[in-house]
Design a protein around this nucleic acid. Structure first.
Lengths: 220, 220
DNA sequence: CATAAAAACGAACGTTCGTGCTATTATATT
DNA sequence: AATATAATAGCACGAACGTTCGTTTTTATG
């Protein structure tokens, strides 16, 4: 009865896998506050009421733990922001979904300490090794998603074909990062609203006449 | 003969003060790469071929060392970027001096690992305590300098009075931070040029007719 | 030049780091 | 239910952390 076997090993996975996942979920939150280097095995074990060695056995090394944490953060990000946005129709709605999701994420609605990847980016931008490479790969993929969404909006004739998609993606990214900075560091509670207004203005500047209305509210 | 005494204690300072300064100069470079927490007393002592305890004696604690490092970074930043720009005439020249200096700084021409304060901002934005407070104070001051320079350019009738000075300062800051990210993490060597062009376009968009020409080169 | 003060050193403290072992539970399969 | 296997705990290790202390060397002053 291979079906039953599969149901047991897939649907209700091994316990080790489940604890591993719960470890990584805690690791992402902790790292978004303390940084990926500040993320410590002992601290994480305390938080989960596990022994250091028991937790450590799930990963061959601290670097493995860091890599797995980055991967988990990526999965959460894709699940929470990218996938819902990609479910919307191509063009302005999808682009707006990405921007709004990105702002929500940056505002700390997804990870505890603000944007996990922005923090990781600046923590590892002067280092080298597999962890840095993993962060770089995620960030490149994210910029590509943004750029493709803009190109899609151009194909849908919502945004002028003359606009530089990659440049606009970079502007959106920069403004969101600036908002993250103003909110988390300077405690500027209006930073997110200002950033959203700013991003909308940038998009309006390159919108075509037959573009659907770009409203200030959360909808597109 | 108080004059001689003063010459000895002021012009040629005590040795301790001099080594303290050289320690802090090294600390700024090291922290711009490893972060302010990753900055370690033993590592710093090795780099300077000093004993840990000898170095430590200059500071009462690691937190003191971090605070002194932030202060030294601030002084270098003011000396190298803010002061030369403030020496230029109020209006567009001064504003352009600040922007160009800021971009140079971000490009890593001042600190080893890119922008010290951007890295420190994201490292401490989820913490609390005196070090975070010091970073916040420096960043607020810097945004204020930028904002005042824009307001000055408005007074000089180089930039439209209708423009929102603080909003423009925030845009400039965000774009430079994005360029720092693209250069240091993604190794995008054109990031600085693109950011400069972008910033110039933002300024041009609010320039008055009698504004001096905004050229792409380094001059204003 | 002598001498008091300042600066740097060397060794050690208690902790915590990451990482190995071995033993002991808990889980899954027959 | 018995048994094999996976998961966790316990303990110890060497290294590095921030920090303290007493000593020695260097510097500045009368």
């Amino acid at each position: 009865m291979p079906g039953a076997v599969q149901r047991k090993t897939v649907a209700r996975r091994r316990k080790g896998e489940r604890t591993r996942e719960s470890i990584l979920r805690a690791a992402v939150d902790l790292a978004s506050v303390e940084g990926l280097e500040g993320l410590t095995i002992g601290r994480l074990a305390d938080e989960l009421k596990m022994s250091k060695s028991g937790l450590f056995a799930h990963f061959g090394s601290k670097e493995d733990l860091q890599l797995a944490t980055v991967e988990m953060a990526r999965q959460i990000f894709v699940e929470r922001i990218v996938r819902p946005a990609l479910a919307r129709p191509e063009g302005l709605p999808r682009l707006m979904g990405l921007c709004q999701g990105w702002l929500d994420h940056v505002a700390g609605h997804v990870f505890k300490g603000g944007c996990f990847f922005t923090a990781a980016s600046f923590e590892f931008d002067s280092r080298s090794g597999p962890v840095r490479d993993a962060i770089v790969a995620v960030m490149r993929a994210w910029i590509d998603v943004l750029t493709r969404a803009i190109a899609g909006a151009q194909k849908a004739r919502h945004i002028k074909a003359s606009a530089d998609a990659r440049k606009l993606a970079f502007e959106v990214y920069s403004l969101a990062m600036g908002a993250n900075w103003a909110l988390q560091l300077l405690d500027d509670k209006e930073a997110m609203n200002k950033a959203r207004a700013n991003i909308l203005a940038r998009i309006r500047a390159v919108a075509t006449p037959n573009c659907p209305p770009i409203k200030d509210a959360k909808s597109a």
